[in-house]
Design a protein around this nucleic acid. Structure first.
Length: 315
DNA sequence: GGCCAGGTTCGCT
DNA sequence: AGCGAACATGGC
């Protein structure tokens, strides 16, 4: 294994520990992401080779700097530069938070919550395929059940590399699921419905019948429209992908139950918002609604992780 | 045991 | 258009 070290400079403010914790749902390991002992690790497939990246902070929130260690059988210049791009994407290092923070100053309820999470950028899925699968696995079920399915998928179908006693896995390729077959997906706790959705998407991608990357150049509404043509993708999933897969700043999954509850708690005298009410209320945060969504979820998630209680009514 | 969870589809009026 | 049911698992 060859090894090289390079440096990344995120746009400040950037709280590496918070971003990495969010990427792993404050659980240390989540799907293909690891964050333990202040080090973020992920196995990537770059130009057909398995490469392990480790990232740690060597700066501060206001003067951020990341040290990335890349281990790979072969280390060409192209591999190094692709790894850099992928990691910058995964960890959202290029996102600008200041305009969002200026907007939030005008919201006395949101402002303290956001201040408390200063430097949180939005982690991105490596591919739209990954975003689509993770989102579908998260539909309707509790976050706990979603985690079991997401981890199970990666453990079962992701190519692995062992390093100092730990096993790392890439997020499974569509081909891996197609090869395994539809029935195999039931074994990792997917409902027949979810297995069908994901298997069909995998098959369409593997056969090149569908191309998700063409969505990257389209405006938000077009992306949503195209994504919802896919069976298994509704409005919630499409907006989740805008936020976590495409890095769009102004998406808002207004049907989301946890979001409706949290917003109702904060802005509606404790009582849950109806989806339309949540949407109407959200326009005041445009064009930064993806950040509002992410910060509200981060507030819920970090409390759930630290307090070990159901976060339904907290914040 | 029954109800619910960071939804979506399908089949009814 | 709008509404209800089915979906399947783990936790309380």
């Amino acid at each position: 294994m060859k090894k090289t070290i390079i440096q990344l400079t995120p746009i400040p403010p950037y709280d590496f520990a918070l971003v990495a914790a969010y990427a792993t749902y404050f659980q240390g390991r989540y799907a293909a992401d690891h964050f333990q002992d202040r080090v973020y690790r992920r196995l990537l497939e770059i130009r057909g080779r398995l490469c392990l990246v480790k990232v740690r902070s060597i700066g501060s929130v206001d003067a951020p700097s990341l040290e990335m260690t890349l281990k790979c059988n072969v280390l060409s210049e192209k591999i190094v530069s692709e790894a850099r791009i992928k990691v910058a994407h995964l960890l959202g290092t290029e996102q600008e938070l200041e305009p969002f923070y200026r907007m939030v100053l005008k919201d006395p309820v949101l402002n303290p919550i956001v201040k408390n999470l200063r430097g949180l950028h939005i982690p991105q899925t490596l591919s739209l395929w990954e975003g689509l699968v993770l989102a579908i696995l998260g539909q309707q079920v509790s976050s706990h059940v979603a985690r079991i399915m997401r981890n199970g998928l990666v453990e079962r179908y992701g190519l692995a590399l062992k390093e100092s006693g730990e096993t790392y896995r890439i997020f499974p390729r569509p081909e891996a699921l197609v090869e395994a077959g539809l029935e195999e997906l039931y074994a990792i706790k997917l409902s027949k419905r979810k297995a069908r959705y994901i298997f069909d998407i995998a098959a369409a991608l593997a056969s090149q019948e569908r191309d998700l990357d063409s969505l990257r150049s389209l405006p938000d509404e077009e992306v949503v429209r195209k994504l919802m043509e896919i069976r298994g993708v509704g409005p919630w999933t499409a907006h989740w992908i805008l936020i976590r897969g495409l890095g769009r700043p102004d998406a808002f999954p207004h049907g989301d139950l946890a979001l409706r509850r949290t917003m109702g708690h904060l802005f509606n005298n404790e009582s849950i918002f109806e989806p339309e009410e949540a949407l109407n209320y959200s326009y005041r945060w445009s064009p930064f609604r993806s950040y509002v969504t992410t910060y509200l979820f981060a507030a819920i998630r970090s409390m759930a992780a630290s307090e070990k209680v159901s976060p339904n009514v907290h914040i």
